[in-house]
Simulated scan of single mutants.
Amino acid sequence: MKIFLCCSAGMSTSMLVKKMQDAANNQGLECSINAYSISEFEPALAENDVCLVAPQVKFQYESFKSRAEQKGKACGLIDMMDYGMMKGDVILKQAVELYNSIK
């Protein structure tokens, strides 16, 4: 499973990506997790299964979700509290559930 987090510059989510990767490793899940800026959405979508949109760019969520669904991919909005508290395990669970919904 390939997951990408979409945020304003692609950098603010790097700590969250690490926490999610740690959670995946602890759970024995094989997945690739990366962060990209909103300007990189289209190429990132082509290479990944699940997009998680960071709260600071939620204004793009409906557009991104629509484009993801057109390509058979999943897209979700990260909860602001989970993002702020860097709950990598909770956000990883959201990504897995989204992935399972498109299979």
Rank of each mutant, 00 (worst) to 15 (best):
V90P: 01
G84E: 10
A44N: 04
S12N: 07
L45T: 04
Q60V: 07
R67S: 09
T13E: 05
Q21I: 07
K58W: 06
D79Y: 07
S39E: 15
V90I: 13
I33L: 03
R67L: 09
Y99V: 00
L98C: 07
D22E: 15
E69W: 09
K103R: 11
N48I: 02
V96C: 08
L29Y: 13
D79P: 02
I91Y: 08
E40Y: 10
M86E: 13
K87N: 13
G76P: 00
I33E: 03
L45H: 02
A23M: 08
G10K: 06
E47T: 11
S8F: 03
I38C: 05
L92N: 15
L77D: 09
E40A: 12
E42T: 09
C51S: 14
V90Y: 11
Q94F: 07
K2D: 12
S12D: 08
K71Y: 05
K58G: 07
S32M: 12
Y61L: 08
P55D: 12
S14L: 12
I102T: 11
F59C: 06
E42C: 02
K73N: 04
M20K: 07
K19T: 06
K71N: 11
C31N: 11
K93I: 05
L45W: 02
M81L: 14
N26V: 02
D89K: 15
N100W: 04
K103C: 09
D82S: 13
K71S: 10
V90K: 15
N48L: 01
K19L: 06
I38S: 10
G28I: 02
K58Y: 11
S8A: 10
V17D: 10
M81G: 12
Q60C: 09
P43K: 09
S32R: 15
K87R: 15
F41Q: 03
L98Q: 13
A54Y: 01
L98W: 04
D49F: 02
Q60Y: 14
K65N: 11
F59P: 01
Q94S: 10
V90A: 13
K71I: 02
F59M: 11
N26D: 12
D22K: 15
P55C: 05
F41E: 03
K58T: 09
V50Q: 05
F41D: 05
P43I: 06
I33K: 00
L16D: 06
D79W: 05
Q27P: 00
M81R: 15
Q56I: 00
I78F: 05
M86H: 05
V17Q: 09
S14Y: 06
Y36L: 03
N34C: 08
Q94W: 08
C51A: 15
A54M: 02
A95T: 03
E69M: 12
K93A: 15
M20T: 07
S32Y: 14
I33M: 05
S39W: 00
A95S: 07
G88F: 04
N48M: 01
E40H: 13
K93S: 14
A24I: 00
K19Y: 08
A35W: 01
S101C: 07
V53F: 00
E30P: 02
V17H: 06
A68G: 09
